[in-house]
């Protein structure tokens, strides 16, 4: 089993002819993902590494089963691309595009909610179930991706795409491996937060523990702490909080758009306190994570 995606998961890429989209389309295909089409307005009829390109999403959904879409269009077009995917009936959307203002992000997420569509991102790299399906651009070239992500028992959620790979690499090296890894996105308004996704990991038989990577800014860690307290989950959680230096620099933003300390709940110190109080283990170093997971699951 796995979270959100599976071996037969089919998806499309909106903005497939862009520089980075070309790259990850090839990488996903090499990894074994089933990409059934791409969309770039005005470029319908071409193909990208054997994937047919269309002008509209509906042209694909009318004739094929499409489980998901990866959106990587320029930011001015991102909301429209998401609305197009939702209206075409696609139920899982990964938005890679960076720099979308929060008002637009909130509109996308609200529209998706009305149609029971799951949104991951914006400003994320997507989802990977090692050796089963890669939905997005996590992990880079297939050869490198296989080095960092091996199948295993730990679910991973991260506000940073790059650190998703770093953490999964550590879990893989330790022999624990990864069940499903989700780069949730670094923006202040994202479609799925840790606590939104926890129930899915909870249901996944392959997942025995969850690791999260977090940063200054936002209330999603506080919310996760609340979730952990209220749900008596079978899954131990190990968290790593980066950007501790930012506690001394209120108002400055580093790393991601959502990474800023303005209020108490934004600060790493506050996040760590709340998570610890809820029984979440907080790691001091990335390298400590596998050991802490093993302790918690008794492996």
């Amino acid at each position: 089993m796995s979270v959100l995606v599976h071996a037969d998961f089919t998806f499309i890429v909106q903005g497939i002819t862009g520089r980075e989209a070309l790259n990850f389309t090839r990488e996903c295909l090499e990894y074994g993902s089933k990409i059934v089409g791409g969309v770039t307005p005005g470029k319908g009829g071409r193909d990208v590494y054997g994937v047919p390109v269309y002008d509209t999403v509906r042209e694909i959904t009318q004739s094929k089963k499409v489980d998901g879409s990866v959106i990587t269009v320029p930011l001015a077009f991102a909301p429209d691309a998401a609305f197009e995917a939702i209206d075409a009936g696609i139920k899982n959307i990964v938005i890679i595009t960076e720099g979308i203002p929060r008002r637009d992000a909130a509109q996308i997420v609200e529209y998706a909610d009305l149609h029971e569509v799951r949104v991951i991102g914006p400003n994320c790299l997507g989802i990977i179930v090692p050796d089963v399906c890669r939905f997005g651009s996590l992990g880079g070239p297939a050869v490198d991706c296989r080095k960092a992500f091996k199948p295993g028992c730990v679910g991973v959620m991260s506000r940073s795409g790059g650190m998703t790979t770093e953490i999964c690499n550590a879990l893989t090296a330790s022999g624990l491996g990864v069940s499903t890894a989700i780069s949730v996105g670094g923006d202040p308004v994202i479609g799925s937060t840790y606590s939104d996704l926890m129930p899915l990991f909870e249901k996944d038989e392959d997942t025995k523990a969850v690791v999260i990577y977090s940063e200054p800014g936002g209330a999603s860690e506080a919310q996760l702490a609340l979730w952990a307290k209220e749900n008596n989950s079978r899954l131990p959680i190990v968290a790593f909080v980066a950007g501790r230096f930012m506690d001394d620099m209120p108002g400055m933003s580093f790393g991601h758009a959502g990474t800023v300390v303005e209020r108490k709940v934004d600060s790493p110190a506050d996040k760590i306190k709340r998570m610890r109080a809820a029984g979440i283990t907080v790691a001091e170093e990335i390298g400590d994570i596998p050991g802490l997971v093993k302790e918690r699951i008794g492996a």
Partner: peptide, 24 residues
């Protein structure tokens, strides 16, 4: 971002979360 601090170690670091982790 490229931001100046007062110390002596020049850092060229991976973006996003990697930069936060490295700086820490």
């Amino acid at each position: 971002p490229i931001v100046e601090f007062g110390g002596n170690i020049g850092l060229v670091i991976g973006a996003g979360g990697g930069s936060l982790t490295t700086f820490d």
